[in-house]
């Protein structure tokens, strides 16, 4: 059960990253390669706030969310908005992710930094397994996000506008939705979210400049399993990837963890290329 808790919390991290990808994807049909790096920056900011500046946790969460939202806003302005060719967005957001990796390395060095967690680091027993408080928080955040966003998108006007935009950009435009502004806001919101969860993610994984790349890949695998744009899919995908990783490294050895996840990705792409929760749409000419 300890293993399962570990796997589930790991999967929750990946799911949270995938949710960030999804928010951007739904609002602007673009894929922000650098989203995982935003989470990484959030973890670093949390480290600085808690360890260097000794600020209270709540304040650190707010600062991290604001700081990363700002980074996301800058990224949108320089690496997404001016790009004419959709093909190039993949290249520019990848560039942004590498840039953030580099800046993080220069600012915080390449040694893993431990981010303290406010609820302590004493494992407790739950359902016959040992689990750390931060792991419970991560799982709870992932579930709450999916439920909350699902609710938000169906009940609020902004949420409905976002869904409409995802369905048909032009139609939304004609209906008076400021598509560009909304897409920008969604992008920044995804950034704020990444900053907010940075503290939790960093507490589990350490803040380290290679975190972004690892999270980006696993987050993508989660997305591929659940299907692009599907929020509930991220929970299923996260669970699958987290457990696979935990079990593979426990029973086969650490070097098999990534391989196991890769095999899941390949299997999903071969059997259901659109993911488990998205129905394949027919192509329109």
């Amino acid at each position: 059960m300890t293993l399962i808790w570990g796997g589930l919390s790991l999967g929750a991290i990946y799911a949270i990253v995938a949710i960030g990808y999804n928010i951007v994807f739904i609002s602007s049909k673009t894929f922000n390669f650098a989203h995982a790096q935003l989470t990484m920056v959030g973890a670093f900011v949390a480290y600085t706030g808690l360890v260097k500046w000794h600020l209270p946790t709540v304040l650190v969460l707010v600062i991290a969310a604001a700081a990363v939202a700002l980074v996301a806003a800058i990224e949108e302005r320089i690496a997404i908005r001016p790009v004419g060719d959709m093909h190039n967005i993949l290249v520019t957001t990848l560039g942004a992710s590498i840039l953030l990796d580099g800046i993080a390395q220069l600012t915080w060095g390449s040694q893993p930094l431990s981010v303290p967690f406010f609820a302590g680091d004493k494992a407790i027993s739950l359902f016959g397994g040992r689990v750390y408080p931060v792991e419970i928080f991560l799982i709870a955040i992932a579930v709450l996000l999916v439920v909350g966003l699902g609710f938000y998108s169906r009940r609020s006007l902004t949420g409905l506008a976002l869904l409409g935009m995802a369905e048909d950009r032009e139609a939304a435009l004609l209906r008076g939705v400021n598509v560009r502004r909304l897409a920008f806001m969604a992008f920044v919101a995804a950034g704020a979210l990444a900053g907010f969860v940075g503290l939790f993610v960093g507490s589990k994984t350490f803040a380290v400049s290679t975190l972004g790349a690892a999270l980006a890949l696993k987050g993508f695998v989660v997305l591929a399993i659940g299907g692009f744009g599907s929020m509930p899919g991220t929970l299923v995908g996260g669970t699958l990837v987290g457990l696979a990783e935990a079990f593979a490294s426990r029973y086969l050895g650490g070097e098999y963890a990534n391989l196991a996840v890769f095999l899941i990705l390949v299997t999903i792409l071969m059997l259901r290329p659109a993911g488990l929760f998205v129905r394949t749409k027919e192509r329109v000419v």
């Binding site: 320089i78 690496a79 790009v83 520019t92 990848l94 560039g95 942004a96 590498i98 580099g102």
Partner: peptide, 9 residues
């Protein structure tokens, strides 16, 4: 990273 952004834009 900067290069890829500038190049892409």
């Amino acid at each position: 990273g900067a290069f890829l952004i500038i190049g892409g834009v």
